[in-house]
Computed example of a mutant assay.
Amino acid sequence: SSAFGTNFDWQTVVPEPDRGTNDPMIDLDNWGVALWRLPNWETPSPGDVYWLSFAVKVTDADGCPGNNHQVEVTYPDGTTTARLIPDRVNSSNEMTFWQAVQLPQGVMPAAGTYTFTVTDEAGNTDSITDDLVISTIDLPQIITPTNGTSTPPCPVFKWHPVTNADNYRVRVYEGVSRTHHSEYTADSSYRIPCGTLDRNGLYHYRIYAYNENYPTVEVDNLSSTEFYHGDQPNFVTDLIPLSPIFNILME
């Protein structure tokens, strides 16, 4: 028994952390604001679709997430704003916030300075600016795999080179979950590593093009194939067993 009697329940009291001890810090992480060009999914409406894509990284020694951070971007006009939402937890003290705003058909965004501000639970803030320079690029045009085709278990993705594009990236999805994303490449083709995809699996994919050397350099302009899962090209990996020689050739 304890000195407080046999019926005393010991409890460990953990005080709430002081959320105002440290100021949050915001970083563009080589993104900030970028103009994203996409195919128009509202057929038969003419013209492509443009989104403003926002992404920043927030760090806070008091915890992130956990300190109820609010991230907002103010447009060059000084009055239009948009709220960014939590996108990815990088560590106990770091998180990425993201938002995409579709522009009205035929309307281009304002170039100029966009200001990002993070505010924590105690009202501490940090701000950073990013200048958007608009230089749109064409959409990637797919060569293979075409929609609805059957492919080997480690297919080759090919597309026509995009004028003024410096880098590309391929993302592969099973359902709505991302299964694989390639490294950034200057080539207009990419072979997915053997063993990454299941045989007899149904997959969708998206190809991105960047006209800055992203991620080494901050991106301002990008384009991609279809955004929404139901519109993305799909393929099925076949069931043909791979021979040892084929595996060696693909390594």
Rank of each mutant, 00 (worst) to 15 (best):
S1A: 15
F4W: 11
T6E: 15
V13G: 04
P15Y: 08
E16P: 02
G20V: 03
G20D: 05
N22Y: 13
D23R: 12
I26R: 00
D27I: 02
L28W: 01
D29Y: 00
D29C: 00
N30K: 11
G32N: 02
R37T: 15
R37E: 10
N40K: 02
W41Q: 15
P44H: 08
Y50M: 05
W51Y: 15
A55N: 03
T59A: 07
T59Q: 04
D60S: 01
G66N: 01
G66L: 04
H69P: 00
H69S: 00
V71M: 02
G78L: 01
G78A: 05
T79E: 14
T80F: 06
A82T: 12
R88Q: 14
R88F: 08
R88A: 04
S91D: 00
S92C: 06
S92N: 14
P104I: 03
A111R: 11
T113V: 14
T113K: 13
V118A: 01
A122T: 03
D130Y: 04
S135F: 13
I137K: 08
L139C: 05
Q141G: 07
I142R: 13
I142F: 08
I143L: 15
T146H: 12
P153C: 11
P155H: 06
F157Q: 10
K158P: 03
W159G: 03
W159E: 02
N164M: 09
A165N: 07
V170S: 03
R171I: 07
V172Q: 04
Y173H: 08
E174Y: 13
G175S: 09
V176P: 01
S177I: 12
S177K: 14
S182N: 02
T185S: 13
T185I: 13
D187R: 15
S189N: 15
S189Q: 13
N200H: 10
Y203P: 03
Y203W: 07
Y205C: 04
I207D: 05
A209Y: 07
E212I: 04
Y214K: 01
V217C: 02
N221G: 06
L222E: 06
S223Q: 06
E226N: 14
Y228F: 15
H229L: 08
H229W: 09
G230L: 09
V236N: 14
T237M: 12
T237K: 10
P241L: 04
P241D: 04
F246A: 02
N247V: 00
L249M: 09
M250L: 12
